[in-house]
Design a protein around this nucleic acid. Structure first.
Lengths: 110, 110
DNA sequence: TCTTCATTTCAAAATAAGTTGAAATATCGA
DNA sequence: TCGATATTTCAACTTATTTTGAAATGAAGA
């Protein structure tokens, strides 16, 4: 992953609505939810939500499949994993103790 | 951490210069580097870098200490750990297999 | 104290991102 | 095919972020 691709992923998460959206999709992985349900859940206008879904999609953080007249969005767990790895990539070089706080926070969530 | 605090942290990482800056500080944890060295390393004007350091500081992702006329910045590994946990917080509820890709990416980096 | 060095602050200009309402597309069931 | 439903697209407007150059701060050494 390049720095600019990674920055695009963080940009996608750098908005309260999109962050809530992404976390909602994580909770609903791997099934996903249709755009309409997402808009309802987050209390956002459908056209506004569509723009946000577009940002997350382009960043590769979510995927979409069609089902009838709905479009179902899902979180891409692979991409988020790569993004986190990219961020903390070289955190242990030389000073393993420096990255302990990050690692322990993570192990307790998943 | 609230959604808006988390979004502020992602905003801080959502810029190529700041992302490079933060990763540079991770590689140099826990010592850190002075503002001048950071500007030199990243080939960015000192005043511009100062603005970016300010964004990362306010987000709580980096810390600063003074040493003579330099200001030394360090990555806050505790905050980044909390931020990542917040993001993938409920990823294992119901469907543990969904978060495997993210977890394995992480374990292999640190 | 004067000068230099390291860095920040400020305000203006430039660029980018988000929101809105109206119109378009595309699928479904009658 | 027609009307209803689900969602996206577009363009305008609004708001926020980034960059720039010049000036300010503050510590160190002569």
């Amino acid at each position: 992953m390049t720095e600019s691709e990674a920055a695009a992923k963080f940009t996608a998460l750098a908005h309260e609505t999109r962050l809530r959206l992404f976390r909602l999709l994580i909770v609903n992985a791997p099934h996903g939810l249709p755009a309409g349900k997402l808009a309802e859940h987050l209390a956002v206008a459908p056209n506004n939500l569509s723009a946000h879904l577009n940002v997350l999609s382009h960043a590769g953080l979510i995927a979409m499949r069609k089902a009838g007249r709905s479009r179902i969005y899902t979180a891409r767990m692979d991409t988020i994993g790569e993004t986190i790895s990219f961020l903390v990539d070289e955190c242990c070089q030389g000073h393993p103790e420096a990255c302990q706080p990050a690692m322990s926070a993570l192990n307790s969530s998943c």
